[in-house]
Design a protein around this nucleic acid. Structure first.
Lengths: 138, 138
DNA sequence: CTTTGTGCAAACGATTTGCAGGATG
DNA sequence: CATCCTGCAAATCGTTTGCACAAAG
């Protein structure tokens, strides 16, 4: 669960991208938290003690990290983009009350049989989104 | 598949809401199309021939219709909200190329066993999102 | 040194809001 | 005729962009 600094360095460099403190900080922040924060939450968090990144830089870093597949965007709330450092396939649980989003292991569900899909469609991936209430919001 | 005017009237009235031509037009437009349009697409469509609704009114009608559960919002694209007049449970296919969204019948997949979810969570519903390429984009 | 990235502020697109006039029940 | 809704324009929110300076390789 620790951040393999060498790995992010390798991935960025292999694409001809620079490893800046800001990019690293954004990635590290995203990895260290269990939720799926918005760009603004990351920005606030990074600058809590000392100024680390500007707003534009956080947005740009998120875009870059997404392009090299170090992070991904999750579409679980209207209006804002949320990010996830877990790029392995998994599902999501979303609390309809507090809007918290929690990962669900891929193996928690049996796999879906996609053969009954209309022919002509090519499938890349799928994902299950479960909605409900978390324990705090019961 | 036709629009049961009486039903929308009944639902709105039962909540003390008025049945205005604009609300009806937005709902009728959404029902008559197979895609999942944005607010702006609906607005353009409604005003194609004669001015029918203003921008603010379309947004407000969508919000109202959503509150009474006549339509729902689908979260499948960043930045914009898309709407769906199909409020019965179903899944979605999304083309990663043209971003078209297509409904998948609920019965297309076997049902998911939710028992393996972490205890403490209460489940309301779930939904499968399949990503891939539609036939046009192959 | 050359190129790419950062920070600032202004620009932008989708959505919301305040308010005066208009339509609905 | 009281209330709720519409339309307009201005405001707001998240995100993007242009550009001068700074840092990385």
């Amino acid at each position: 669960m620790s951040i393999h600094k060498s790995e992010i360095v390798k991935i960025l460099k292999s694409k001809g991208l620079r490893v800046t403190p800001q990019r690293f900080a954004v990635y590290a922040n995203l990895r260290s938290r269990g939720d799926h924060p918005t760009a603004e939450q990351i920005l606030t968090d990074l600058n809590k003690n000392t100024p680390t990144s500007s707003q534009a830089t956080v947005y740009s870093a998120l875009q870059t990290l997404r392009e090299v597949n170090l992070i991904r965007e999750v579409l679980l709330q209207e209006g804002v983009s949320r990010y996830d450092a877990n790029v392995t396939p998994h599902h999501h649980f979303r609390c309809r009350q507090c809007e918290k989003i929690e990962d669900i292991d891929w193996d928690a569900f049996q796999s879906i049989n996609l053969n009954s899909l209309r022919p002509g469609l090519t499938v890349d991936s799928y994902e299950i989104t479960v909605q409900g209430l978390c324990e705090k919001c019961q």
